[in-house]
Design a protein around this nucleic acid. Structure first.
Length: 624
DNA sequence: ATAGGGTTAG
């Protein structure tokens, strides 16, 4: 055993915790050997002291260098020193230095490999440095497990995204008789959240209550985050409200939970509550608040967020930077987005992609392409997101040459296995009037998600190739992809475009009988399709049915209804729609205004005509 | 005599 080995070696009697001034008490009748031992001890203590303080100052490598000196002076290094050194490496995540120490232990202190303290320290060290294989292996060979080694192993699996393994460990440690403490529980909750395992998570919550960990901010914040990740916002809020003490992470978890569940207004509110409480926001706070502001288009709030980041001296890292840029793009302030981009010191692929897709969405394809070139000159590679933006930009400007270049890049760089990229390639060829190319790409794709199916389906529908559309519609179901409202809409549109009105109406009724409540899109498709096929009365009837079904008309559906009003007989409908538009203060789009004017002109009604015309003028002047 | 923990963009 290790302890036996210590007593037989002369010098490394481990220094007591409070060093005594031992030299004062050396009796004069000590033998030469005993005196040597004493002076060794003094020397050893001084080395221990130096090593320990170097480790605490973060200079582990310097501390390790002292080991060689000790060897020269014939001092044997004890487990306490190795413990200090390894701890220093844990703080610094100094993998290289830690390996050196491990080697030292194996070489110079073979009995220490059976010292449980050093062994678990090694497990913790490798776990902290995310060296999965080594720490797992050492852990399995541990003679004595304890809560610390279990916590390190579980934490490592959690960090590296192996949530199942982390939870398996959490269960096994309890089977082995170790009670999880408030340090392990957050990791278990994080794993539950990542997997959405709400059943187990609730069990852990119960355990937290039973053990009285609920007071611990770390545990409570993890509960908030876990419930947020599982989409149970009421419980997240309940835990949050029940917290006696909330640090900034607790607030952040609540804000993030709301943002991730599409409840941006609530997120903004929590942010303001946090400000009232005087809690200083971090980068996490501000970037989450900015996504919330971007989601709801809250211009002033988002600008305030940016100001808070600047005033608070928050470092403009990739995440905060992209959040700010994303916000400015979402509210249309491209110049501000550019300014922030230029101030960022480090940019990763995500940052560049954001800029590219931002420009592409605002139709500034030239700028998007310029950014691509700059990105290449910084030696960054395009990824699937870059290509998706590029392809969709090529589609928007109907530039097939550019689109083909993008397609080729995808082939060369193995990006065509990405479903998003493939959908964009297909859509690009469709928009460039080469449905045959699109179909080829579609056929050779390996994985097909609902979006890819719908892209191809919509292409045939637009062209009125209802047969092909219907074939795809059945094929996707055979391949296990259930159609959604958009797929149904395409089939209906395909029939309408090819003049098969009965089939279209039939499909629409089938959609109803499936218990799916169609949104305004299929309704509008049917209305304008009926009108285009000469079934004006039916179209108006469907428009009325849509409102009876509880769907509020929007600009597009109003236009489709107006398109059904082609002769004087429908004048009262036109007037009704006109009145509706005015009462509900709906933005008078150019197509709607034009239809109104057209109809009034046909019927020789100049008063109404003038009225509609005035509306356009006033709306347009407001817009400018 | 002794070690450790939660949140973030597309």
């Amino acid at each position: 055993m290790a302890s036996l080995a210590f007593t037989t070696t002369p010098s490394p009697q481990f220094p007591p915790f409070k060093p005594k001034k031992s030299h004062k008490f050396i009796p004069t009748h000590l033998t030469k050997l005993q005196e040597d031992a004493k002076s060794h001890q003094v020397l050893y203590k001084s080395y221990f002291h130096r090593i320990s303080s170097l480790c605490k100052e973060g200079q582990v490598q310097e501390a390790v260098n002292l080991l060689a000196e000790m060897e020269l002076k014939n001092l044997k290094v004890g487990p306490q020193i190795y413990g200090e050194l390894l701890q220093g490496c844990v703080y610094q995540r100094a993998l290289f230095t830690g390996r050196q120490i491990h080697a030292h232990i194996v070489k110079h202190g073979n009995f220490f490999t059976e010292n449980e303290y050093i062994e678990s320290k090694l497990v913790i060290f490798y776990a902290k440095c995310d060296v999965l294989e080594v720490s797992n292996c050492l852990f399995r060979r541990l003679l004595v497990q304890n809560v610390f080694s279990w916590a390190a192993i579980i934490g490592m699996h959690c960090r590296m995204g192996f949530s199942e393994e982390a939870l398996l460990g959490f269960v096994e440690m309890q089977r082995n008789g170790f009670l999880p403490d408030n340090f392990v529980v957050p990791n278990a909750l994080k794993a539950c959240g990542a997997l959405g395992w709400i059943g187990l998570a609730k069990g852990v919550h119960g355990y937290v209550v039973k053990m009285g960990f609920g007071e611990c901010v770390f545990v409570a914040s993890s509960l908030v985050d876990m419930y947020g990740k599982c989409g149970i916002l009421e419980d997240a809020r309940k835990v949050f409200d029940g917290m006696l003490e909330r640090n900034v992470v607790a607030w952040n978890s609540m804000i993030v939970s709301y943002v991730q569940n599409g409840m941006s207004e609530e997120a903004v509110e929590v942010f303001y509550d946090m400000r009232v409480e005087g809690i200083e926001p971090t980068r996490v706070t501000v970037s989450s608040f900015l996504s919330a502001s971007a989601n709801i288009g809250a211009l002033e709030e988002g600008k305030q967020g940016h100001a808070i980041a600047v005033l608070g001296g928050l470092e403009l890292d990739n995440i905060l930077g992209t959040s700010i840029i994303n916000f400015y793009f979402k509210v249309g302030l491209i110049d501000d987005a550019e300014l922030v981009f230029s101030r960022m010191l480090e940019k990763d692929v995500v940052t560049w992609n954001l800029l590219i897709s931002g420009y592409a969405q605002f139709g500034q394809v030239d700028k998007a392409l310029n950014i691509c070139q700059l990105m290449r000159s910084e030696n960054l590679r395009f990824d699937a997101v870059t290509l998706a933006s590029l392809l969709s930009a090529s589609a928007d400007i109907r530039n097939m040459k550019l689109g083909k270049e993008g397609h080729c890049y995808c082939i060369r760089n193995n990006l065509e296995s990405d479903v998003v990229v493939v959908s964009n390639i297909v859509d690009m060829y469709v928009k460039c009037d080469r449905i045959d190319y699109a179909r080829q790409v579609f056929n050779s794709s390996v994985k097909r998600d609902i979006i890819l199916w719908n892209t191809m389906l919509a292409a045939y529908a637009e062209l009125g190739q209802s047969g092909e559309a219907l074939k795809l519609f059945y094929q996707m179901q055979l391949e296990g992809v259930p159609p959604n409202a958009i797929s149904w809409n395409s089939v209906i549109l395909g029939f309408l475009r090819s003049g098969q009105v009965n089939e279209a109406t039939d499909m629409f009724l089938q959609l109803h009988s499936l218990g799916v409540q169609p949104d305004w899109i299929p309704w509008t498709t049917l209305i304008s399709g009926l009108a285009q096929n000469g079934f004006q009365d039916e179209a108006i009837l469907v428009f009325q049915q849509m409102q009876e079904a509880g769907i509020t008309p929007n600009t597009t559906s109003l236009f489709s209804a107006l398109s059904a009003c082609t002769d004087k007989a429908a004048l009262h409908y036109v007037k009704a729609i006109h009145g509706y538009v005015t009462r509900h203060n709906i933005w008078l789009s150019i197509p709607i205004a034009t239809s109104l004017l057209d109809m009034y002109a046909k019927c020789g009604i100049t008063d109404q005509e003038n009225c509609a015309f005035d509306m356009i003028l006033s709306k347009e002047s407001i817009m400018q």
